[in-house]
Protein backbone atom coordinates (compact mmCIF):
# COMPACT_ATOMS: atom_id res chain seq x y z
CA UNK A 1 0.00 0.00 0.00
CA UNK A 2 1.46 3.31 -1.03
CA UNK A 3 0.10 6.52 0.40
CA UNK A 4 -0.09 9.66 -1.62
CA UNK A 5 -2.18 12.37 -0.02
CA UNK A 6 -5.71 11.03 0.16
CA UNK A 7 -5.37 8.50 -2.65
CA UNK A 8 -3.44 5.28 -2.43
CA UNK A 9 -3.02 2.10 -4.38
CA UNK A 10 -4.98 -0.97 -3.41
CA UNK A 11 -4.65 -4.53 -4.64
CA UNK A 12 -7.95 -6.11 -5.52
CA UNK A 13 -7.96 -9.86 -6.06
CA UNK A 14 -10.96 -11.03 -8.03
CA UNK A 15 -12.03 -14.57 -8.69
CA UNK A 16 -12.38 -15.09 -12.45
CA UNK A 17 -14.16 -17.99 -14.10
CA UNK A 18 -15.87 -18.57 -17.41
CA UNK A 19 -17.15 -22.16 -17.40
CA UNK A 20 -17.05 -22.25 -21.22
CA UNK A 21 -13.30 -21.72 -21.28
CA UNK A 22 -11.73 -22.20 -17.86
CA UNK A 23 -11.15 -25.48 -16.05
CA UNK A 24 -11.40 -23.90 -12.64
CA UNK A 25 -11.71 -20.48 -10.99
CA UNK A 26 -8.53 -18.43 -10.56
CA UNK A 27 -7.72 -15.26 -8.64
CA UNK A 28 -6.54 -12.27 -10.68
CA UNK A 29 -4.88 -9.23 -9.15
CA UNK A 30 -5.61 -5.65 -10.11
CA UNK A 31 -4.10 -2.43 -8.81
CA UNK A 32 -6.45 0.52 -8.40
CA UNK A 33 -6.12 4.05 -7.07
CA UNK A 34 -8.53 4.55 -4.22
CA UNK A 35 -9.62 7.51 -2.11
CA UNK A 36 -11.44 7.48 1.24
CA UNK A 37 -14.87 7.50 -0.44
CA UNK A 38 -14.17 4.62 -2.87
CA UNK A 39 -16.57 1.70 -2.47
CA UNK A 40 -15.81 -1.89 -3.40
CA UNK A 41 -18.13 -1.49 -6.39
CA UNK A 42 -16.28 1.68 -7.47
CA UNK A 43 -13.08 -0.36 -7.53
CA UNK A 44 -14.72 -3.05 -9.70
CA UNK A 45 -16.13 -0.40 -12.04
CA UNK A 46 -12.69 1.19 -12.38
CA UNK A 47 -11.11 -2.16 -13.19
CA UNK A 48 -13.77 -2.92 -15.79
CA UNK A 49 -13.60 0.50 -17.43
CA UNK A 50 -9.83 0.91 -17.53
CA UNK A 51 -8.13 -2.47 -17.21
CA UNK A 52 -10.26 -5.45 -18.10
CA UNK A 53 -13.60 -5.06 -19.86
CA UNK A 54 -14.29 -8.77 -19.56
CA UNK A 55 -14.63 -8.64 -15.77
CA UNK A 56 -18.24 -9.62 -15.13
CA UNK A 57 -20.51 -8.78 -12.20
CA UNK A 58 -24.05 -7.60 -11.53
CA UNK A 59 -24.88 -4.15 -10.17
CA UNK A 60 -27.50 -1.49 -10.63
CA UNK A 61 -28.83 0.95 -8.03
CA UNK A 62 -25.54 1.73 -6.21
CA UNK A 63 -27.21 2.33 -2.85
CA UNK A 64 -28.21 -1.02 -1.39
CA UNK A 65 -31.84 -1.22 -2.49
CA UNK A 66 -31.86 -3.33 -5.69
CA UNK A 67 -30.02 -6.39 -4.35
CA UNK A 68 -27.95 -7.08 -7.50
CA UNK A 69 -24.41 -6.86 -6.18
CA UNK A 70 -24.20 -9.31 -3.28
CA UNK A 71 -20.74 -10.91 -3.33
CA UNK A 72 -18.23 -12.44 -0.98
CA UNK A 73 -15.55 -10.00 0.15
CA UNK A 74 -12.74 -11.41 2.29
CA UNK A 75 -14.90 -14.40 3.14
CA UNK A 76 -17.99 -12.46 4.16
CA UNK A 77 -21.14 -11.97 2.10
CA UNK A 78 -22.06 -8.34 1.52
CA UNK A 79 -23.36 -5.88 -1.01
CA UNK A 80 -20.38 -4.23 -2.66
CA UNK A 81 -22.12 -0.98 -3.64
CA UNK A 82 -22.31 0.49 -0.16
CA UNK A 83 -19.23 -1.19 1.26
CA UNK A 84 -16.38 1.31 1.70
CA UNK A 85 -13.22 -0.23 0.30
CA UNK A 86 -11.17 1.12 3.22
CA UNK A 87 -13.14 -1.18 5.54
CA UNK A 88 -12.13 -4.35 3.70
CA UNK A 89 -8.48 -3.65 2.86
CA UNK A 90 -5.98 -5.47 5.02
CA UNK A 91 -2.78 -3.87 6.33
CA UNK A 92 -1.09 -4.43 3.00
CA UNK A 93 -3.98 -2.78 1.17
CA UNK A 94 -5.44 -5.95 -0.29
CA UNK A 95 -8.98 -7.29 -0.59
CA UNK A 96 -10.32 -10.48 -2.16
CA UNK A 97 -13.65 -10.59 -3.98
CA UNK A 98 -15.35 -13.86 -4.81
CA UNK A 99 -18.86 -14.74 -6.00
CA UNK A 100 -21.50 -15.75 -3.43
CA UNK A 101 -20.49 -19.19 -2.11
CA UNK A 102 -22.45 -22.44 -2.53
CA UNK A 103 -24.16 -21.26 -5.74
CA UNK A 104 -23.24 -22.27 -9.30
CA UNK A 105 -21.08 -19.65 -11.02
CA UNK A 106 -22.34 -18.23 -14.30
CA UNK A 107 -19.27 -16.09 -14.92
CA UNK A 108 -16.73 -14.38 -12.67
CA UNK A 109 -18.76 -12.78 -9.86
CA UNK A 110 -22.16 -13.60 -11.36
CA UNK A 111 -23.89 -16.56 -9.71
CA UNK A 112 -26.91 -18.59 -10.69
CA UNK A 113 -29.69 -17.75 -8.24
CA UNK A 114 -32.31 -20.08 -9.85
CA UNK A 115 -32.58 -22.28 -6.77
CA UNK A 116 -33.01 -19.19 -4.62
CA UNK A 117 -35.90 -17.93 -6.77
CA UNK A 118 -37.50 -21.37 -6.96
CA UNK A 119 -37.68 -21.49 -3.18
CA UNK A 120 -39.10 -17.96 -3.17
CA UNK A 121 -41.84 -19.10 -5.57
CA UNK A 122 -42.43 -22.29 -3.64
CA UNK A 123 -43.64 -20.44 -0.52
CA UNK A 124 -46.14 -18.37 -2.57
CA UNK A 125 -44.67 -14.97 -1.65
CA UNK A 126 -47.82 -13.05 -2.58
CA UNK A 127 -50.54 -11.90 -0.19
CA UNK A 128 -53.80 -13.84 -0.36
CA UNK A 129 -56.34 -11.20 0.67
CA UNK A 130 -59.80 -11.92 2.14
CA UNK A 131 -62.62 -12.53 -0.37
CA UNK A 132 -64.40 -9.36 0.68
CA UNK A 133 -62.36 -6.30 -0.06
CA UNK A 134 -63.47 -2.91 1.29
CA UNK A 135 -63.79 0.15 -0.94
CA UNK A 136 -60.97 1.91 0.93
CA UNK A 137 -58.03 0.40 2.82
CA UNK A 138 -57.97 -2.47 5.30
CA UNK A 139 -57.45 -0.96 8.76
CA UNK A 140 -54.14 -2.26 10.07
CA UNK A 141 -53.08 -0.93 13.44
CA UNK A 142 -49.70 0.81 13.70
CA UNK A 143 -48.57 -2.10 15.88
CA UNK A 144 -49.48 -4.63 13.18
CA UNK A 145 -47.54 -2.54 10.67
CA UNK A 146 -44.54 -2.27 13.01
CA UNK A 147 -44.35 -6.08 13.32
CA UNK A 148 -43.88 -6.37 9.55
CA UNK A 149 -41.38 -3.55 9.07
CA UNK A 150 -38.17 -5.53 9.05
CA UNK A 151 -39.40 -8.38 6.89
CA UNK A 152 -40.66 -5.86 4.35
CA UNK A 153 -37.14 -4.42 3.97
CA UNK A 154 -35.67 -7.59 2.44
CA UNK A 155 -34.17 -6.86 -0.98
CA UNK A 156 -33.72 -10.52 -2.03
CA UNK A 157 -29.99 -10.14 -2.63
CA UNK A 158 -29.20 -13.73 -1.64
CA UNK A 159 -26.44 -12.88 0.86
CA UNK A 160 -28.20 -14.86 3.60
CA UNK A 161 -29.13 -17.78 1.38
CA UNK A 162 -25.59 -18.28 0.17
CA UNK A 163 -24.13 -18.02 3.70
CA UNK A 164 -26.37 -20.81 5.02
CA UNK A 165 -24.70 -24.20 5.47
CA UNK A 166 -28.08 -25.89 5.62
CA UNK A 167 -28.72 -24.64 2.08
CA UNK A 168 -25.26 -25.84 1.11
CA UNK A 169 -25.98 -29.32 2.46
CA UNK A 170 -29.55 -29.58 1.28
CA UNK A 171 -30.86 -27.64 -1.69
CA UNK A 172 -34.46 -28.55 -0.93
CA UNK A 173 -34.40 -26.35 2.20
CA UNK A 174 -36.54 -23.26 1.48
CA UNK A 175 -33.93 -20.95 2.92
CA UNK A 176 -33.85 -17.86 5.16
CA UNK A 177 -35.04 -15.43 2.44
CA UNK A 178 -38.22 -17.39 1.71
CA UNK A 179 -38.93 -17.94 5.40
CA UNK A 180 -38.54 -14.22 6.11
CA UNK A 181 -41.04 -13.58 3.31
CA UNK A 182 -43.35 -16.15 4.90
CA UNK A 183 -43.06 -14.33 8.20
CA UNK A 184 -44.23 -11.19 6.39
CA UNK A 185 -47.25 -12.97 4.97
CA UNK A 186 -48.18 -15.09 7.98
CA UNK A 187 -48.14 -12.13 10.35
CA UNK A 188 -50.03 -9.82 8.00
CA UNK A 189 -53.62 -9.55 9.27
CA UNK A 190 -54.77 -9.23 5.65
CA UNK A 191 -53.50 -12.67 4.68
CA UNK A 192 -56.20 -15.33 4.56
CA UNK A 193 -54.09 -18.44 4.30
CA UNK A 194 -51.88 -18.57 7.40
CA UNK A 195 -52.78 -22.18 8.15
CA UNK A 196 -51.85 -23.48 4.69
CA UNK A 197 -48.63 -21.51 4.83
CA UNK A 198 -47.72 -22.87 8.26
CA UNK A 199 -48.41 -26.42 7.08
CA UNK A 200 -46.14 -25.90 4.08
CA UNK A 201 -43.24 -24.40 6.00
CA UNK A 202 -43.79 -26.71 8.99
CA UNK A 203 -42.98 -29.61 6.66
CA UNK A 204 -39.80 -31.37 5.77
CA UNK A 205 -37.72 -28.55 4.35
CA UNK A 206 -39.21 -25.67 6.26
CA UNK A 207 -38.58 -24.00 9.59
CA UNK A 208 -37.43 -27.12 11.44
CA UNK A 209 -34.58 -27.63 9.01
CA UNK A 210 -32.89 -24.45 10.31
CA UNK A 211 -29.96 -25.25 12.60
CA UNK A 212 -29.71 -21.71 14.02
CA UNK A 213 -26.23 -21.22 12.65
CA UNK A 214 -27.05 -17.49 12.45
CA UNK A 215 -24.97 -16.84 9.32
CA UNK A 216 -28.04 -15.26 7.72
CA UNK A 217 -28.13 -12.54 10.39
CA UNK A 218 -24.46 -11.70 10.01
CA UNK A 219 -24.62 -11.77 6.21
CA UNK A 220 -27.70 -9.57 5.80
CA UNK A 221 -26.71 -6.16 4.39
CA UNK A 222 -30.00 -4.69 5.60
CA UNK A 223 -29.39 -5.86 9.16
CA UNK A 224 -32.47 -8.06 9.20
CA UNK A 225 -32.94 -11.15 11.36
CA UNK A 226 -34.23 -14.19 9.47
CA UNK A 227 -33.42 -16.51 12.39
CA UNK A 228 -35.76 -14.64 14.74
CA UNK A 229 -38.47 -14.81 12.05
CA UNK A 230 -37.91 -18.56 11.72
CA UNK A 231 -38.16 -19.00 15.51
CA UNK A 232 -41.48 -17.12 15.52
CA UNK A 233 -42.79 -19.26 12.66
CA UNK A 234 -41.76 -22.43 14.51
CA UNK A 235 -43.87 -21.42 17.47
CA UNK A 236 -46.82 -20.47 15.26
CA UNK A 237 -46.57 -23.73 13.32
CA UNK A 238 -47.16 -25.58 16.56
CA UNK A 239 -50.43 -23.78 17.23
CA UNK A 240 -51.50 -23.12 13.69
CA UNK A 241 -55.16 -24.01 14.08
CA UNK A 242 -55.61 -21.56 16.93
CA UNK A 243 -53.65 -18.96 15.04
CA UNK A 244 -55.87 -19.42 11.98
CA UNK A 245 -58.98 -18.98 14.13
CA UNK A 246 -57.56 -15.76 15.57
CA UNK A 247 -56.83 -14.53 12.05
CA UNK A 248 -60.37 -15.28 10.84
CA UNK A 249 -61.69 -13.35 13.80
CA UNK A 250 -59.38 -10.41 13.18
CA UNK A 251 -60.47 -10.27 9.55
CA UNK A 252 -64.07 -9.68 10.68
CA UNK A 253 -63.07 -6.21 11.85
CA UNK A 254 -60.36 -5.51 9.28
CA UNK A 255 -62.47 -3.04 7.33
CA UNK A 256 -63.55 -1.13 10.44
CA UNK A 257 -61.68 1.68 12.20
CA UNK A 258 -59.13 0.25 14.59
CA UNK A 259 -59.67 1.12 18.26
CA UNK A 260 -57.41 4.07 19.02
CA UNK A 261 -55.25 3.59 22.07
CA UNK A 262 -55.10 6.64 24.35
CA UNK A 263 -52.03 8.70 23.59
CA UNK A 264 -51.59 6.99 20.20
CA UNK A 265 -49.25 8.95 17.99
CA UNK A 266 -48.77 9.59 14.29
CA UNK A 267 -45.89 7.64 12.65
CA UNK A 268 -42.57 9.13 13.82
CA UNK A 269 -41.30 9.51 10.27
CA UNK A 270 -44.36 11.29 8.86
CA UNK A 271 -42.38 14.50 8.39
CA UNK A 272 -40.00 12.94 5.93
Amino acid sequence: MTQNGTTRTATIRVQRFNPDVDAKPTLREYQVQVSPDTTVLDALETIKATQDGSLTYRRSCRHAICGSCAMNVNGKNTLVCNKPLREVLDRKGRATIRPLPYLPIIKDLVVDRSQFWEQYLRVKPWLIPPADVPEAEFRMTPAEVAALRDAEKCIMCGACYSSCQVVALRQAYVGPHALLKMYLRVLDPRDSAPEERLVEIGGDDGVYRCHTIFNCIDACPKELNPTAAIETLRKLAQKRAAFARERAERQQTLAMPAPVAPGAEMPADIEG
Binding site: P129, V145, I270
Partner: peptide, 21 residues
Protein backbone atom coordinates in the same frame (compact mmCIF):
# COMPACT_ATOMS: atom_id res chain seq x y z
CA UNK B 1 -56.20 1.15 -2.20
CA UNK B 2 -55.46 -1.53 -4.75
CA UNK B 3 -51.83 -1.60 -3.62
CA UNK B 4 -53.04 -1.86 -0.05
CA UNK B 5 -55.34 -4.76 -0.84
CA UNK B 6 -52.45 -6.57 -2.55
CA UNK B 7 -50.27 -6.43 0.54
CA UNK B 8 -48.32 -3.16 0.62
CA UNK B 9 -47.40 -2.33 4.19
CA UNK B 10 -48.13 1.39 4.32
CA UNK B 11 -47.46 3.39 7.47
CA UNK B 12 -50.72 4.07 9.34
CA UNK B 13 -52.43 6.66 11.48
CA UNK B 14 -53.71 5.34 14.84
CA UNK B 15 -57.17 4.30 13.57
CA UNK B 16 -55.63 2.16 10.83
CA UNK B 17 -55.99 4.45 7.80
CA UNK B 18 -52.98 5.00 5.55
CA UNK B 19 -50.73 7.78 6.87
CA UNK B 20 -49.72 10.59 4.53
CA UNK B 21 -46.76 12.93 4.61
Amino acid sequence: YEYEHMGCVFSRVPDGRIAQR
